[in-house]
Amino acid sequence: MLKKILLGLVVVLVALCGFIATRPSTFVVQRTATLKVSPDIAFAAVNDFHRWAEWSPWDKMDPQQKTTFEGAASGTGAKYGWSGNDQVGEGRMTIEESRANELVRIKLEFIRPFATTNSTSFLFAPAAEGVSVTWKMEGTNDFMGKAFSAFMDMDAMVGKDFDKGLADLAKVAEADAQKLAQAEAAKRAAEEAAAAAGGTSEAGQPGVEGAVAVPTP
């Protein structure tokens, strides 16, 4: 009887391994949102890892996580590392390609709870209302990755985080745009005030034609 049970378990395990082996060897998760700002403002918030805490959905999962910044201040060569609770794990990101207002491509490396490397990109394209931002992650599935995807919907799980991140990115970018507009308006007002003051000063000074000739004794 025990032999039959063990044989049955072996058959089930073999069948399960066969099913897992048929799962896709690659995956892609992608979400797109339209932000009501110019491309340069949205790009700036993504191209600088120092600003990710303002909108990244994962930073909010563990406010106490340890973060490090290395390499370039922003753009190509910038590196960001994190280590936190079980929800965020540990890993690092490196910007491998940055094209102003068009693309930020990132090497995403997870160290804990499992080691894997994926590619993440942000694509920026002009849209009628502002800029279209596409957040995309793609990679390959080893056997464990295939097993995970067999029981978990990777697109739904990661996709909801992308949706939340893009929604928060929109809020941050729109706030940046408002601050920039206010700063530009204040600058214009100051320039106009300075010009008006300069014009009054010049108008108040007598010209050569208006000078009074003083007779010499």
Rank of each mutant, 00 (worst) to 15 (best):
L6H: 13
D59M: 15
P24Q: 13
T134P: 01
V158S: 06
N47E: 14
P63C: 09
K136G: 00
L2K: 15
F110C: 08
R99Y: 00
T140H: 15
A211E: 09
K60T: 06
G145E: 08
L180A: 09
V172A: 09
A193R: 15
F27I: 07
L7F: 09
E54N: 14
D168F: 04
L166H: 04
L13V: 04
D142E: 10
P217M: 14
P24E: 08
E90L: 03
G159R: 08
P113R: 08
Q182G: 05
S119R: 14
V29P: 02
F43I: 09
A156N: 03
E70I: 00
A181F: 05
I41K: 11
N101A: 11
K160G: 00
A203R: 15
V28G: 10
A15I: 10
F43G: 08
I20A: 06
V104A: 06
F27P: 07
G198V: 01
E90W: 03
A195E: 09
E97C: 08
P217N: 14
S119H: 05
Q178W: 01
F110L: 14
P206R: 13
V133I: 05
F122V: 02
R99S: 07
T34G: 10
D176I: 01
A128V: 01
T134D: 02
V133M: 10
G199P: 02
E96C: 00
K179Q: 06
E96T: 03
R99A: 07
V29K: 05
S149E: 08
A156Y: 00
M152I: 04
A203T: 01
V29I: 10
F110W: 15
V46S: 05
E109C: 07
G77N: 09
T116S: 11
P63D: 12
D176T: 00
R31E: 12
L180Y: 01
T68R: 10
R105T: 00
F162T: 01
E70F: 07
E97K: 15
A189L: 06
G204A: 11
A15M: 13
K3W: 11
I111L: 15
E192K: 15
K3S: 15
A150F: 04
G145M: 11
D163V: 08
G89H: 08
T34A: 14
V29G: 04
V28H: 10
A186L: 11
A115L: 11
I41C: 09
H50I: 01
A156I: 02
P24H: 10
K164D: 01
K164I: 00
F124W: 07
T200D: 14
V10P: 06
T34S: 15
K179P: 03
A193Y: 01
N118M: 03
P57T: 12
A15N: 05
E90G: 02
A193T: 02
C17K: 13
M93V: 01
L123D: 11
G204W: 06
G159V: 04
D86A: 11
N118C: 07
P113N: 07
L166N: 08
P217W: 13
G165Q: 06
A197V: 00
N85T: 00
